[in-house]
Design a protein around this nucleic acid. Structure first.
Length: 256
DNA sequence: CGACAAGCCTGGTAGC
DNA sequence: TGCTACCAGGCTTGTC
């Protein structure tokens, strides 16, 4: 499912294919995918314009269309497809942008957890939705992370899932980060030692970057989400439980 | 056939 | 009282 690394991939895909072509038409195949904007308004405000740049924050993609920004959120089954032949339209295309010149960009999403919307300003959106820092933002540092964790009595897993501290990690990457850092998902955020917070930030960045780069996941828990699986790190037996409302896997032997 | 999984929002409650 | 934490429920649909 699309978390930060996958959305980074979509952002690059969008940048590579969908910029600098006048938008001839916008076809909303299923209005349930839309956020605030109505289908007619989406089409009216984009038609004749071009996407000039695209950026990402956490799991959100923002494309600049001049007077407005297109916002895409990929939910759990969202994807982009760029193609010329209309018969190549994906089965679950929800919105299709048709460019002058005949190319198409489809936002597809089988399970409709994603969102297509039009907003005025990405930074205002990020602020109003209380999204935390993007973990790959170089300006985001250890000092700031420590400050964010201070006084938070909730479980670290819940906090990393919430998007309000750091934006972009979903269930799988939170588990992976805690696994590789050796931190138990139920640890109180406030009680993490300085070294653990440092490892947390460095590890999540390394994991996200490795995924973006398509590196192999040797020694990760990522592909072993199964109760009773062997811990690739220490030979312990992986445990499974619902934590923060999500299926959570961890190694009780080395995550403490 | 029903249960389940996912991300994220909403609304309610409990506790300091 | 106000804040924080935390829970259930809803949305959707392919897969088990």
């Amino acid at each position: 499912m699309p978390e930060l690394p996958e959305v980074e991939g979509y952002t690059r895909y969008f940048r590579e294919h969908a910029l600098h072509q006048p938008i001839a038409r916008v076809d909303v195949r299923d209005a349930r995918i839309l956020g605030e904007v109505r289908p007619e308004a989406l089409a009216r405000r984009l038609r004749g314009r071009t996407f000039t740049s695209v950026r990402r924050h956490g799991k959100h993609l923002f494309a600049d269309a001049g007077a407005a920004w297109l916002r895409l959120h990929f939910g759990m089954t969202g994807d982009l497809a760029y193609y010329r032949d209309p018969s190549d339209e994906p089965r679950f295309a929800r919105v299709v942008f048709g460019f002058e010149g005949g190319a198409h960009l489809a936002f597809e999403d089988m399970r409709l957890f994603g969102v297509v919307d039009l907003i005025d300003d990405p930074d205002a959106f990020i602020a109003s939705h209380r999204l935390g820092r993007d973990p790959l933002d170089p300006a985001f540092g250890l000092r700031e992370l420590r400050k964010l964790l201070a006084g938070r009595r909730g479980a670290i897993k819940a906090l990393l899932m919430s998007q309000e501290l750091v934006a972009g990690l979903g269930n799988l990457y939170v588990d992976e980060t805690l696994f590789q850092t050796g931190i138990h998902p139920l640890r109180t955020a406030d009680a993490l030692r300085d070294g653990e917070v440092r490892a947390l930030l460095a590890t999540m960045r390394r994991i996200l970057q490795a995924m973006i780069d398509g590196k192999p996941r040797r020694g990760w828990i990522f592909d072993r989400r199964e109760e009773g699986e062997r811990c690739p790190k220490c030979g312990g037996t992986l445990r499974r439980a619902t934590i923060a409302g999500r299926t959570t896997y961890w190694c009780p032997k080395h995550q403490r």
